[in-house]
Write a protein that binds this DNA or RNA. Structure first.
Length: 544
RNA sequence: GCCCCGAUAGUUCAAUGGAUAGAACACUAGCCUUCUAAGCUAGAUAUGCAGGUUCGAUUCCUGCUCGGGGCACCA
């Protein structure tokens, strides 16, 4: 039996409407609610006014009709109350079946197949390799990682990808910065212009630069040096980011996609021809323009400058063609910081122009405001004033940091109080959840392995815990569609709360005997907590 | 000027157009002879302003106020 009852209710109502038992009612008005309070019923169906009026006319009949058409074990009764609510009461048979299912599915509990093996590319973080990852990168990084995990758990074929901007102007500035520091290290007197990067990491990079024969003087020699420095600095930065991300942030990437590599094999020429063939470009003022206005953007955009250099948008078009034409993905999910929102219009235009309308979702993560000693601390890579993710994790631990970034809706502004984060790190809600898991493990360690037995619920703390456990599959599917990753920590908290309450009310081990129902409930809770934390990339410790 | 986000308790955040707007932190008072007290129980406080749509609005629409971000032949 599937604990997901919602589809069943939908089916039942559809059937009732189609068979004409109810008057002709528009189906979109029909909606479903989750349990709210015990006295409201375990599952409540919420319908809009038109339907509600019908319900009020003959409530009892409608309730019976739904019950008959639901065809589900464990439905106790159906009540129609207040305008717009149908409460469906389930009995313990229903709950017991759900708990049994959790124990059968083990680590797979929570997964679903709604993705149907669609090929999704999730691109996130993709910070320029011109400086260390800072606090502001946390949202996109952890959020994207969790979206990828949730999509995988929902049966999508997922490629998680970091797009490395190792091409273009920003890397030139990095090269210039490192080169000047390098020259200064060599005792050569060069100035250090305002627009260059200022962080200490530039000095570190400069120390690592290896140049066998430096000959100063003419411009060609300088350019050669700069090219070498650029290559080394960019590679060093990428290596740093890769190591941090995989070893310390627990973020998994399937692909590290180089922007520079998109330009190999005459890509510029070929792509320009490809675009021209389709009438997507025109020339004006000595530049090549992309006809983006025709596809919904507010203006046309340059893709090849007067100088012959390509713009960033051109790279993105290359990248889009790579994704949709060469790798044949079905859908592209992209997490961007809110400071890139101006980019949405042209990206959508480009996707439509190359013939893949509605195959892209950009998720904007609002910026994080860093508070320190009651004041806002402005973060700037250029000024070298930022808190790196690495420092933060060393201070408070990865689980705390991941939880913190995941617990808020990505679309809401967020303050990060550095003092508070450090001071209260032991009070972070993540410990509340982990503690529940550790408590469970400690119980399980004391009990021998026992064969499954029928569940007999004896109090409300057992039942309310079971009800919450049954919701995980629905939740995972919902998050896979809405990308609202903050629902996972919210849910984990609910589970933990229900468990802690259960723990004080219901003993598993009573003297010499073990309560089999409670034991199985505890095992199921452990699986739910572990699987939920796993989706968030957070540890489920056995001891604390 | 135009565009995108946001405004909910002292603070940080939740809440598919529905039921008594939920947590956490902080504060107060209780609870360990029993599976981990990093826990449990009880307690006060909130939808920026003005309209509109609706049986019903924190949610949708309009205007305003305040805050963040963006409007390049930069990335």
């Amino acid at each position: 039996m599937k604990p997901v009852i919602i589809d069943k209710i939908n089916e039942a109502v559809k059937k009732i409407i189609q068979t004409g038992t109810w008057p002709n009612i528009k189906l979109p008005a029909f909606e479903v609610n989750y349990p709210v309070q015990p006295e409201h019923g375990d599952y409540a169906v919420n319908v809009a006014m038109k339907l509600a009026k019908v319900l009020q006319q003959n409530p009892m009949d409608i309730g019976e009709l739904i019950k008959e058409n639901l065809n589900l074990d464990g439905i106790e009764r159906v009540e129609v109350v207040r305008p717009g609510f149908i409460n469906i009461f389930v009995n313990t048979t229903f709950l017991a079946g759900g708990v049994r299912l959790i124990l059968e599915q083990q680590n797979d509990y929570g997964k679903n197949n709604s993705g149907n093996h669609k090929k999704y590319l999730v691109e996130f973080l993709s910070a320029n390799p011109t400086g260390p990852l800072h606090l502001g990168n946390g949202r996109g990084g952890f959020g994207g990682d969790v979206i990828a995990r949730v999509l995988r758990a929902s049966g999508y074929d997922v490629i998680s990808e970091y797009y490395v901007n190792d091409y273009g102007n920003q890397t030139n500035i990095l090269a210039e910065s490192v080169m000047r520091r390098y020259l200064q290290n060599q005792g050569i007197n060069v100035d250090y212009p305002e627009e260059l990067y200022k962080g200490d990491y530039i000095k570190e990079l400069a120390k690592q630069v290896v140049l066998p024969d430096v000959k100063l003087g003419n411009q060609a020699a300088m350019l050669a040096i700069k090219a070498k420095v650029k290559d080394q600095a960019v590679q060093a930065m990428i290596k740093q980011i890769k190591e941090l991300v995989t070893r310390k942030l627990n973020i998994h990437y399937d692909v590290w996609k180089s922007e520079k590599a998109l330009y190999e094999n005459d890509a510029v020429k070929k792509t320009l021809a490809w675009l021209k063939e389709r009438g997507l470009t025109f020339e004006q003022d000595g530049a090549v323009w992309f006809n983006s206005k025709k596809f919904g953007d507010d203006k046309d955009r340059v893709i090849v400058k007067q100088t012959g250099e390509t713009t960033y948008l051109f790279s993105d078009i290359l990248y889009l063609i790579d994704k949709f034409e060469q790798r044949k993905i079905d859908y592209w999910v992209c997490l961007l910081g809110a400071d890139h929102h101006g980019y949405q219009g042209r990206m959508e235009a480009a996707v439509v122009a190359i013939g893949h309308r509605n195959k892209m979702q950009i998720i904007f993560t609002q910026l994080v405001r860093l508070m320190f000693n009651g004041k806002e601390l402005r973060m700037s890579k250029r000024q070298g004033t930022f808190v790196t993710l690495e420092e933060l994790i060393e201070d408070v631990g990865l689980d705390v940091v991941r939880w913190f970034f995941l617990m808020h809706d990505t679309n809401t502004h967020m303050d990060f109080d550095l003092n508070l984060a450090k001071e209260h790190s032991d009070k972070n809600p993540v410990y509340y959840v982990q503690y529940a898991h550790a408590r469970i493990c400690s119980i399980l360690a004391k009990v021998p392995k026992l064969a499954p037995a029928p569940l007999q619920f004896t109090n409300s703390s057992e039942e309310s815990l079971a009800k919450i456990l049954l919701r995980l599959p629905e939740l995972v599917e919902e998050v896979s569609k809405t990308y609202q990753v903050h629902k996972l920590p919210q849910y984990a908290l609910e589970v933990a709360r229900a468990f802690h309450y259960f723990y004080t009310k219901s003993r598993v081990i009573e003297g010499e005997t073990v309560n089999r129902t409670r034991l199985q409930l505890v095992q199921a809770t452990q699986l739910v907590l572990k699987n939920t934390l796993q989706l968030m990339g957070i540890n489920a410790p056995e001891k604390m």
